[in-house]
Design a protein around this nucleic acid. Structure first.
Lengths: 213, 213
DNA sequence: GTAAATTGTGACACACAGTGCCATAATTTT
DNA sequence: AAAATTATGGCACTGTGTGTCACAATTTAC
């Protein structure tokens, strides 16, 4: 989680003390949020407790995250950053979905073992914890809006509602990929994230093919 | 808006004074919310102002709506009620989407002129007003969860993530239908709500057909 | 019809979220 | 080493949402 820079600028300058501390602190807060929220439910945790657990003041917490729910959903921040910065290409509405899927592919390639472990944990929280679930869907919408705006630049002649719709669908498929992956339990039949996302896309296609007579 | 009973029980008993006042008050609050929120943006409106405009106390407002954003989104409440109460039939995942679409069709049939005018107004707010937009997507998720749970009863052998996904897609198509309809401006080429929703379903199919090579 | 039970309302208090502001400490730059 | 920048904590303040109580209005039972 955490290093939203990973995708954007691989070749950065050294990274000063400030930068490193900032990154580490965000990570510490993130872990504290999961640690406290996982057992009790996020509604039962106050920002004051969270800040105390991370060794900072309430005020400082809000300088690093907009809300306690935000502190949990680090994966969304990475996907959002990718939606903003990765190159996209599409020459019509139906290609737009593929363009979004390609962004997802790149993100998947960058998610290593620690991120995957986080995904399992956070996705489990999204299923159980209403506060987190609510916040996750809001984040999804923000990401879809970013995709919509980028598609708008690529396809200025397409109606905006259609682009928004495609962006929505793209994000829904992405989310379902993770839900599917996180639902795996026994290692025997477990899919890799890439496989789960492929399955999500296939299910999307299958459902659409038979719908709307 | 307003009468969430319309779909559920057409043949009801007379309706007492209490019931009527309750309904009228909800409607009054709803209108006050739109009236205040439309020009200023919902973030700039406090519940105290809203309650004052509706002639009630702040405390009473919260007995009728969970939040000021909720007070604006009356159409979502109707759709939610329909998702809960209308009969659904499906024997596999791909039919599930059609089942959700059928619920939408029934709701559409019941939306008269005043509701349609409201849809235009509220949808415009959803586009402009971040607070409302955020809340709308949360409502959509709640509705999708209701559909998911109902599908779970109909198709107990299907994996829950798949059902959740289909429910998500169904709601996304529904929402896009309204967005598309609300985007119409000149009466000359304007679509009816039914036509817009049909177009939404077709776009869904078209996008899916060419995606995921 | 009147009495009892139920339900809606306002007032008050309270916990908590989120933000503006300022003084201070730590770091980067010059 | 001094100056400029940036992170932090403390404090105050607005606003949300909920629990609780007393009281008024309706509904139900008799």
């Amino acid at each position: 989680m955490t290093d939203t820079r990973a995708l954007a600028d691989e070749g950065g300058r050294p990274e000063g003390v400030r930068e490193r501390r900032n990154r580490e602190l965000r990570q510490r807060i993130h872990l504290a949020a999961i640690e406290l929220g996982e057992p009790a439910g996020m509604d039962a945790v106050t920002v004051a407790e969270l800040a105390a657990a991370a060794g900072i003041s309430r005020r400082t917490f809000f300088r690093h995250f907009r809300s306690k729910e935000d502190a949990v959903l680090a994966g969304h921040a990475r996907y959002l950053a990718a939606a903003r910065s990765l190159p996209m290409r599409a020459s019509n509405v139906t290609e737009a979905l593929s363009a979004i899927e390609r962004v997802g592919d790149v993100v998947l390639e960058h998610e290593g073992q620690p991120e995957l472990a986080e995904h399992r944990r956070v996705n489990a929280m999204i299923q159980r914890d209403q506060a987190i679930r609510t916040h996750a869907v809001v984040q999804d919408r923000l990401i879809a809006d970013v995709f919509r705006d980028r598609l708008r630049e690529l396809l200025p002649h397409e109606p905006v509602p259609a682009l928004e719709f495609v962006a929505d669908l793209g994000v829904a498929v992405w989310r379902h990929g993770w839900v599917r992956w996180s639902a795996q339990q026994d290692a025997a039949t477990a899919e890799s994230p890439v496989e789960s996302h492929r399955a999500a896309r296939q299910l999307f296609r299958a459902v659409a093919a038979s719908a709307t007579r």
